[in-house]
């Protein structure tokens, strides 16, 4: 078991190295000039800037310097915010994205299990039809539309109430997080609902449920003890990657609700060709995803005794 995870961790490090290298060379291959601004620079000012960022070195040398720095956990200084270290940007903004993401996952997980179980229970009756219609909406409507509509509705509600029921944006308290987290978790919730529904339906037709019915157990007990517990396993499996996806994919929600998360930096850095921030956030998110996948494997082994690692 231990050896297996040691192997996984080494493989994970190789993956991160690959991500870092691919990002590095991909980024330098993208056309465009990271130092270009509205106003042209004199050759000297440009040379000064290139020297400052080490862009005057050959690409191979830059790559080695950069790998060495990453190995020491140093991502360098941002190109657009010239006196901020990329490490500081990640340290200050990732916790915000993570907090929002975890809340979104809680919403998505609870909602997905609840709605999924309900639809399966009322299969082909009106609650099923209504919920599944909303699920299709939740999957197909892009998050910037949902975000804009929910903010607009909040403004209307606040105006009608004459006071602030919920803040329409900003960051600081639990109240600021509620609506953005809901919006962020919505499509995952819809996805989980569908997964839970099909998983529940599969369980309904199994022998042990029939046995339970034959034993004369009350319906509620069958539902909670046997059906739900067994049906929830696939949901747990997809939660890991979903957590990584949600904590990194909040760009639109962060812009609309003025939330200072890392997702904004991740996307804007690419638009602005901010080399160090692109590298820092990509490698960081890559490492985070690798870590989550390993963690899920570990947890899965604990939950389901059938999953055993061969020696």
């Amino acid at each position: 078991m231990l050896r297996y995870f040691a192997k996984r961790i080494v493989l994970g490090l190789v993956t991160i190295w690959f991500i870092a290298s691919a990002t590095f060379f991909g980024m330098h291959a993208v056309p465009g000039d990271p130092l270009a601004g509205d106003k042209a620079m004199t050759a000297q000012i440009r040379a000064n800037l290139e020297a400052k960022y080490g862009l005057d070195q050959p690409l191979g040398t830059q790559y080695l310097i950069y790998l060495g720095n990453i190995a020491q956990g140093d991502f360098g200084i941002s190109y657009t915010q010239e006196n901020r270290r990329v490490n500081d940007i990640i340290r200050e903004h990732f916790p915000i994205s993570a907090t929002l993401g975890i809340l979104a996952i809680v919403f998505a997980g609870l909602g997905g299990v609840l709605w999924g179980a309900l639809t399966a229970l009322y299969r082909n009756r009106w609650p099923d039809v209504v919920i599944m219609f909303l699920v299709i909406l939740g999957i197909s409507v892009p998050s910037f539309v949902v975000a804009a509509i929910s903010q607009w509705s909040l403004v209307g509600a606040n105006l009608a109430a004459g006071t602030t029921i919920l803040p329409i944006g900003g960051w600081g308290t639990v109240w600021h997080m509620l609506v953005p987290a809901l919006v962020l978790g919505l499509s995952t919730m819809a996805y989980l609902t569908r997964l839970m529904r099909s998983s529940m339906l599969e369980v309904v037709s199994t022998d042990y449920i029939r046995t339970a019915k034959a034993k004369g157990l009350p319906a509620t007990q069958i539902f909670s003890r046997h059906q739900l517990r067994n049906a929830i396993l696939p949901v747990v499996t997809v939660l890991g990657p979903a957590i990584a996806g949600i904590t990194t994919g909040g760009f639109v929600v962060e812009i609309v609700f003025a939330i200072p998360g890392l997702g904004r930096y991740f996307v804007q850095a690419i638009q602005q060709l901010d080399y160090t921030v692109i590298m820092g956030t990509t490698v960081f998110y890559g490492a985070f995803l690798v870590f989550m996948v390993i963690l899920v494997d570990l947890v899965y082994g604990l939950i389901d005794p059938r999953v055993r690692v061969e020696k």
């Binding site: 903010q151 329409i168 812009i255 609309v256 003025a258």
Partner: peptide, 17 residues
């Protein structure tokens, strides 16, 4: 608030923030 979203800005104004 710091955001580049013009619609969000209008919403903040309407909300008297």
């Amino acid at each position: 608030f710091i955001t580049s979203d013009a619609t969000a800005s209008l919403n903040f104004f309407k909300d008297r923030k």
